[in-house]
């Protein structure tokens, strides 16, 4: 029997557990600033509640974002390390695809956009048609998002949400293995903030020079 653990820290802390064909279990901590603190206790609780041990897992699905980097890495490194130690495969999926799958299962329109908060007045988003991602994930200002029905945790930053706004850990665990492979690296979409330094600034006391004086 398959026992799949789903983890996603692209927004809050989300875990899901799918055992065979039974209805998946879900555990959530609605906190966007304590991923490293909350994730592992949540997984332990989820497994314990199902009467299972970590060694019972047969697979792991992890949301690789996009999302704020520090929190996102918590889920990814946790999934990769669990996979390594337990000897089970880790499947990375785009977190926006999970929300799209949720909506597709409950009567989504033909075309829609899933968006999440990228901070700095931008959103991460992807465009879906007939349930498939046809463009994205992108990061841009909200006014660059095509005018389509909206879902996802950042939908309200773009307009009005008409689909699900919260990633469902149960769908992640149950449907994750069939979603497109997004790799095992976070979908950063942005380069690190870093500037190559210019010439060092002068450390000498600067004399006040009369305007127009020639050197």
């Amino acid at each position: 029997m398959t026992v799949i653990l789903g983890l996603d820290t692209s927004t809050s802390v989300v875990a899901g557990l799918a055992v065979g064909d039974a209805a998946p279990r879900v555990a959530v901590v609605d906190d966007t600033r304590a991923h490293a603190e909350q994730l592992m206790p949540l997984v332990r609780e989820l497994l314990g509640g199902a009467g299972l041990a970590p060694t019972d897992l047969t697979g792991i699905v992890v949301g690789v974002g996009p999302g704020p980097f520090t929190g996102l890495r918590v889920g990814v490194v946790t999934a990769l390390t669990l996979g390594e130690v337990l000897g089970v495969a880790v499947h990375g999926v785009c977190s926006l695809d999970v929300v799209a799958a949720q909506w597709a299962a409950s009567g989504a329109p033909d075309e829609f956009v899933v968006a999440s908060d990228a901070r700095r007045r931008e959103v991460y988003w992807a465009h879906y048609a007939r349930g498939m991602r046809v463009s994205g994930p992108h990061v841009s200002a909200p006014d660059r998002v095509p005018p389509l029905p909206l879902a996802g945790p950042g939908a309200t930053l773009v307009g009005e949400a008409s689909g699900p706004t919260v990633l469902d850990g149960g769908v992640l665990a149950a449907r994750g293995p069939t979603l497109p492979d997004a790799g095992r690296e976070p979908l950063y979409l942005r380069r690190p903030d870093a500037e190559v330094p210019g010439a060092p600034k002068s450390a000498l006391p600067q004399p006040r020079v009369a305007f127009g004086m020639r050197p």
């Binding site: 592992m40 997984v43 970590p54 890495r73 918590v74 130690v85």
Partner: peptide, 20 residues
């Protein structure tokens, strides 16, 4: 560094939890 620390800490927690 916060972003750096949480990577090792999360990996350590995963190992501790997985192997009890």
């Amino acid at each position: 560094l916060m972003g750096a620390l949480v990577v090792g800490l999360s990996a350590a927690k995963a190992i501790a939890m997985a192997l009890d």
